[in-house]
């Protein structure tokens, strides 16, 4: 049994240790080959490790506070050039195996888009990462405009992976959607709260009328 554990550790440990460096190296070689590598080390450090607010060079990384080991991992991944670096058995899995709810959007279901049509081939950088084609600075040109000709940065702020409008997640991330949903919900509830009992009462009551009202 102990041997099996040791074997597992040997298999896993180098992968975890090297993965981050591996993806960074991949970009470094590509950039160096293309001759586009930046001269300043500070910018390179920024590009490799930090999430971008979309206005790189002027304002930068978001202040990300992890609350626990799971969040730490998620936040660390949100800042990576290869968001899936070091994940075991990654190449044999489908996106929806982990991102199950992400496929429940109109682009996937109605337009029959695949994940890769927007998120691109491997390595998939985090959406806010400098490298990402979905970074807000270039999303409209690199992704949206492939189908929506003439799309600008404003157009790209359409939320494809929309949170459930009634959820607390929407309240935090998309308040306009959340409160619009509440407004329409209470409008519908209000209309039916008045008119269903009114209709049923009317319907029942008419059967008990014996005399016709006087004219």
């Amino acid at each position: 049994m102990r041997v099996a554990w040791l074997f597992a550790l040997v298999l896993l440990a180098p992968q975890l240790a090297w993965a981050q460096q591996y993806s960074a190296d991949r970009y470094a070689t590509t950039n160096a080959a293309a001759g586009t590598d930046d001269a300043t080390a500070a910018v390179r450090r920024y590009r490799d490790q930090l999430a971008s607010s979309g206005y790189y060079e002027t304002s930068d990384a978001r202040n990300m506070l992890p609350y626990g080991p799971t969040e730490t991992d998620a936040y660390r991944r949100a800042a990576q050039a290869d968001a899936h670096a070091g994940l075991g058995d990654y190449s044999h899995r489908k996106c929806v195996a982990c991102h199950e709810q992400s496929a429940a959007n109109l682009h996937t279901i109605r337009a029959n888009n695949t994940c890769r049509q927007c998120h691109g081939p491997e390595p998939i950088a985090s959406v806010t990462h400098y490298f990402s084609r979905l970074n807000p600075v270039r999303r409209h040109a690199y992704v949206c405009a492939k189908c929506h000709e003439g799309a600008g940065a404003s157009f790209a702020s359409y939320v494809v992976h929309e949170p459930l409008p009634s959820s607390s997640e929407a309240r935090m991330a998309f308040p306009a959607l959340f409160y619009s949903d509440r407004l329409m919900f209470w409008l519908i509830v209000g209309v039916f709260l008045i008119f269903i009992p009114h209709s049923v009462g009317w319907w029942i009551r008419e059967w008990f009328v014996k005399k016709k009202p006087e004219v």
Binding site: G150, A151, S154, Y158, E162, P165, F174, A176, L177, D181
Partner: peptide
């Protein structure tokens, strides 16, 4: 949608669809 996003922010389309 593209023309609308020139006048209003694009996320308004999410809200418009909901309404």
């Amino acid at each position: 949608p593209v023309e609308t996003s020139r006048l209003l922010p694009g996320w308004v389309l999410n809200v418009a669809l909901l309404f």
